[in-house]
């Protein structure tokens, strides 16, 4: 799905003393020229670290993001909805796999990244710390959360790091299917019985603000944006992406008869964009810090799955080692 810059402290801005200026200059020139940087190419340490953090946060978001939707697989209201939701959640798991692999090309391992997730050191998208309470939440997630993910990820298909950009190309194709299926669930509910319509409106009320917070802090308070934009790790700022999302989503809500829960929302003729109300950044930072409504449940679920599965992973390794030993013995 999606992640954004969630560290309040900027990474090291200046070049490290050990980094030869001529290499740095050549690197900056290649990036400015929109060339892809590949795993074996020289890159500044801060670029590598920023990417590892961003890609691993993104991967963790995919994996943690399986939980709120997985919560409804056993309760999906028709066989078709169940199959589509299973396929969607599987896609998220697949995205997690490509992204962990992309991060591994930068010299970290999946186990290290997972340790950071389980210990609470690594972040994941704030949106997954909100609960899925009704079936309409599955529609809202597809429509709003995957919709926001697309806004963010389409520009990342041209991000400067080759393996990340290529992973994004695959991810984006699937996300647009997810967004459509989510909107279709909402459309059906909004045109359904009065209870169904109320369910849809309630889901929009609860997911709207967390969804527009997903784009991250406002530009004036986003410490890494300038460097990330220069390095083509990011291609548009948080506020630019947020505005795009609002402009696209508000008419969609109106078209199915739902109301966006923002009394200050209005079309600004002069700007040709919507003006929207103030975002509760205190809530955003609290959720980033791990104080979201179901943050504890999410981390506990991931940690338990990992710990309870340890014997299985050990067995797979032990069997592979025994097989290798047997093959070697046969060869002698």
């Amino acid at each position: 799905m999606y992640t954004t810059e969630m560290s309040k402290n900027p990474t090291r801005q200046g070049p490290s003393a050990a980094e030869p200026p001529e290499l740095l200059e050549a690197f900056e020139a290649r990036v400015a020229n929109d060339e892809f940087i590949e795993p074996k190419d020289w890159m500044p340490e801060a670029y590598r670290k920023t990417l590892i953090r961003q890609i691993s946060q993104h991967a963790h978001s995919e994996i943690v993001g399986m939980l709120p939707e997985g919560n409804w697989i056993t309760r999906a209201p028709s066989l078709r909805r169940k199959a589509v939701l299973l396929a969607k959640v599987q896609d998220e798991g697949g995205h997690g796999l490509y992204l962990y692999s992309a991060a591994e090309t930068l010299g970290t391992s999946r186990d290290e990244m997972l340790d950071a997730l389980h210990s609470g050191k690594a972040k994941y998208s704030t949106i997954f710390n909100y609960p899925t309470l009704t079936w309409a939440d599955i529609g809202a997630i597809g429509w709003l959360v995957d919709g926001a993910a697309i806004m963010n990820q389409v520009p990342l298909q041209r991000t400067s790091y080759g393996p990340y950009a290529r992973a994004m190309v695959r991810v984006c194709k699937e996300e647009s299917f997810h967004q459509r299926q989510g909107f279709e669930i909402m459309m059906r509910l909004a045109a359904g019985t009065p209870e169904q319509k109320a369910m849809a409106q309630d889901a929009l009320n609860r997911w709207w603000w967390p969804s527009i917070m997903m784009f991250g802090p406002p530009d004036e308070n986003s410490p890494n944006t300038a460097q990330s934009v220069r390095w083509r790790i990011k291609r548009e700022t948080n506020d630019e992406l947020r505005q795009k999302f609002v402009d696209v989503t508000v008419p969609q809500a109106e078209s199915i008869g739902l109301t966006v829960p923002d009394k200050d929302l209005k079309w600004n003729e002069a700007r040709g964009q919507y003006d929207y109300g103030a975002i509760d950044w205190e809530e955003f930072w609290a959720v980033v810090k791990g104080e979201g409504p179901v943050a504890k449940e999410r981390v506990k679920a991931r940690t338990e799955a990992w710990e309870k599965g340890a014997w299985v992973r050990e067995a797979a390794l032990a069997h592979a080692a025994k097989q290798a030993a047997r093959r070697q013995k046969e060869a002698v």
Partner: peptide
Amino acid sequence: GEWCGHAPALEADLSLT
């Protein structure tokens, strides 16, 4: 489907679902 998100490794999660 109950395993989704809770399997011992990501690959196993994907194959069960």
